[in-house]
Computed example of a mutant assay.
Amino acid sequence: MAKKRIKLHGFNNLTKTLSFNIYDIAYTSSKAQQQEYIEYIDEEYNARRLTHILTDVSNIIGANILNIARQDYDPQGASVTMLISEEAVAAGELDNRETPGPLPDAVVGHLDKSHITVHTYPEYHPENGISTFRADIDVSTCGRISPLKALNYLVHSFESDIVIMDYRVRGFTRNEKGGKLFIDHNINSIQNFVSRDIKNAYEMIDVNVYQENIFHTKMMLKKFDINNYLFGINDDDLTGKEEAVVTDNLRREMAEIFYGQNMKKGMKF
């Protein structure tokens, strides 16, 4: 049963922002494969495709799209920014409970909102053959419902080895008696808004600052199949020693991104 709605004085002035990075990692054994991977990513996640994804997000959150600015970059990368306006949220549709939002096959839900942005950053390691694609996504809303309801759709829209998420509620609004409210919904972890299939697939850790309404969750894919990371080749093309080196480099890349620090050679992951 939904929690009774808080009566406010005027407009809800809270700003709720979900920011997250997704990383896709691949092994590219030659300069030609590195370039081929970059071209693949640029085609798979070009400005047009990203616009489609963000349009779906705007549908999830019930937004009117006012303006779209998108750009593909040379030599690589793309950006899309959408300015969006509010629609009325019908009585009974507001739901801020700590439950997962819709998956791609069930795109329903509504948020009060302001903007959505995505920027991509494909790159490759100059020596060890590791190529990494990063997408930075921000969904910022002004009003009653949290953008966390769009989280599951976004995670499912990208092939992600690492996901790093930040959620923050800023500012304050007032109740009808004039008292300040610095958050208007219950939350103790971003994980409570994540669907079960995602939880089962990823190792997850939290770093939260509850008194500041700041929530941080990191996710790293649990299952490691080297063929999912080889680009242009498969494991039959590698000797046993080569496969061990490639596996170590891939795991190192994932661990360094997940823990946010460079790892010394010889460390086990």
Rank of each mutant, 00 (worst) to 15 (best):
P104T: 02
P104D: 00
D105V: 03
D105M: 07
A106D: 14
A106Y: 15
A106N: 15
V107G: 02
V107P: 01
H110G: 10
H110Q: 15
H110A: 11
D112S: 09
D112Y: 13
D112Q: 14
K113F: 08
S114H: 10
S114D: 14
H115W: 05
T117F: 00
T117I: 07
V118T: 07
V118R: 00
H119P: 00
T120Y: 12
Y121S: 11
E123D: 13
Y124M: 02
Y124A: 13
Y124I: 07
H125R: 04
N128Q: 08
N128T: 06
G129V: 10
I130V: 15
S131V: 11
T132H: 03
T132I: 15
F133C: 03
R134I: 05
R134E: 14
A135E: 04
D136R: 12
D136L: 14
I137L: 09
I137C: 11
I137A: 11
I137N: 00
D138F: 09
S140D: 06
T141F: 06
C142S: 08
C142F: 11
R144F: 08
R144W: 13
I145W: 00
I145G: 10
S146Q: 05
P147I: 07
P147H: 03
P147C: 01
L148K: 09
L148G: 08
L148Q: 05
A150E: 07
L151I: 10
L151D: 00
N152P: 03
N152D: 07
N152H: 00
N152I: 06
N152G: 03
L154W: 09
L154K: 02
L154I: 04
V155S: 06
V155D: 04
H156F: 14
S157N: 11
S157F: 02
F158E: 01
F158K: 03
F158T: 04
E159P: 02
E159V: 10
E159D: 15
E159W: 01
D161T: 07
D161F: 08
D161W: 02
D161Y: 05
V163K: 02
V163G: 12
I164H: 10
I164S: 10
M165W: 11
M165K: 11
D166S: 12
D166F: 10
D166A: 09
Y167P: 05
Y167G: 05
